[in-house]
């Protein structure tokens, strides 16, 4: 691969105003060492296909915008080095299992709506404290480690594109939203198991996962949604038998009373949200 000088992109294209069905178009660009799939797309847009559309923002694997099917595998275009693909022939398509808006842009709204339905935030009774915090909730490092991995999810949709159940079943919540259910259920500050259980105890719930393992294999952040879903199932089964360890949401740690501000340290700015 070290002699590679050109790279060919075969891109699945669809313009709703022009096309009745997606089709492939091929573009060849110069390869330079270190070129990512995303940078290659920019090069194609600048020189060969100005109407080519995709979604991207941070170009460093943080925003989760540029998920697409690259040589048959859902990945982020920005953190996929062409040299790592082992070929100079690239086949790009929009993430499967989402409707195509245009070219490489999938419609992620169904995933995000489901995510929203499953209460992906800390649920607890002291609403006033959450709106106007007077301190912090207690949480140990060990507590944090129980959900930290799952909190790295960037909602790119790669897991949904790889999941065989999502491939056919629109009622299944899918690995991303369910992974986030486990993330919040495990958070010691949270007391929302029951409300989330109501949302997932039926046909959209984790039982639709049969551990094909693809979501974890493609996750660009190592979130391991399959692990989260299996741990969620265990809690749901224990709940059936009344054996789930019920946790009280952690208590508030008030501000230290005898602490003094050091000289020269300015006050924090007022909260803006």
């Amino acid at each position: 691969m070290s002699e590679m000088s050109k790279v060919t992109y075969r891109i699945r294209r669809y313009d709703p105003n022009r096309d009745t069905a997606p089709h492939y178009e091929t573009y060849t660009i110069d390869y330079t060492p270190g070129l990512t799939v995303l940078e290659g797309l920019w090069l194609i847009k600048e020189t060969l296909a100005p109407d080519l559309v995709w979604r991207a923002s941070c170009r460093m694997g943080v925003c989760g915008s540029c998920g697409m099917l690259i040589n048959g595998m859902a990945r982020l275009a920005c953190n996929t080095q062409i040299s790592d693909l082992g070929t100079d022939q690239l086949v790009l398509a929009p993430l499967p299992n989402f409707n195509i808006i245009r070219d490489l842009v999938p419609d992620l709204m169904p995933m995000l709506s489901t995510h929203q339905d499953l209460h992906p935030y800390v649920v607890r009774d002291d609403v006033a404290e959450q709106e106007e915090p007077t301190g912090e909730y207690y949480q140990s490092i060990h507590d944090l480690e129980q959900y930290l991995q799952f909190s790295y999810c960037i909602k790119c949709g790669c897991c949904m594109a790889a999941c065989p159940t999502v491939a056919t079943d629109p009622t299944y919540a899918g690995p991303m939203p369910l992974g986030q259910v486990q993330r919040y259920n495990t958070d010691t500050r949270d007391g929302g198991f029951e409300v989330r259980k109501e949302a997932i105890a039926g046909e959209r719930g984790p039982w639709r996962c049969h551990y094909a393992g693809e979501c974890s294999r493609v996750c660009p952040k190592g979130v391991d949604p399959a692990k989260a879903i299996q741990l969620l199932k265990r809690q749901m089964v224990l709940d059936v038998f009344g054996l789930r360890a019920k946790k009280c949401p952690s208590k508030l740690v008030g501000k230290p009373k005898d602490a003094k501000r050091r000289n020269g340290i300015p006050e924090a700015p007022k909260p803006t949200v």
Partner: peptide
């Protein structure tokens, strides 16, 4: 609901 049915499964 499936939570129980799947547990029995």
């Amino acid at each position: 609901r499936d939570q129980k049915l799947w547990t029995w499964h």
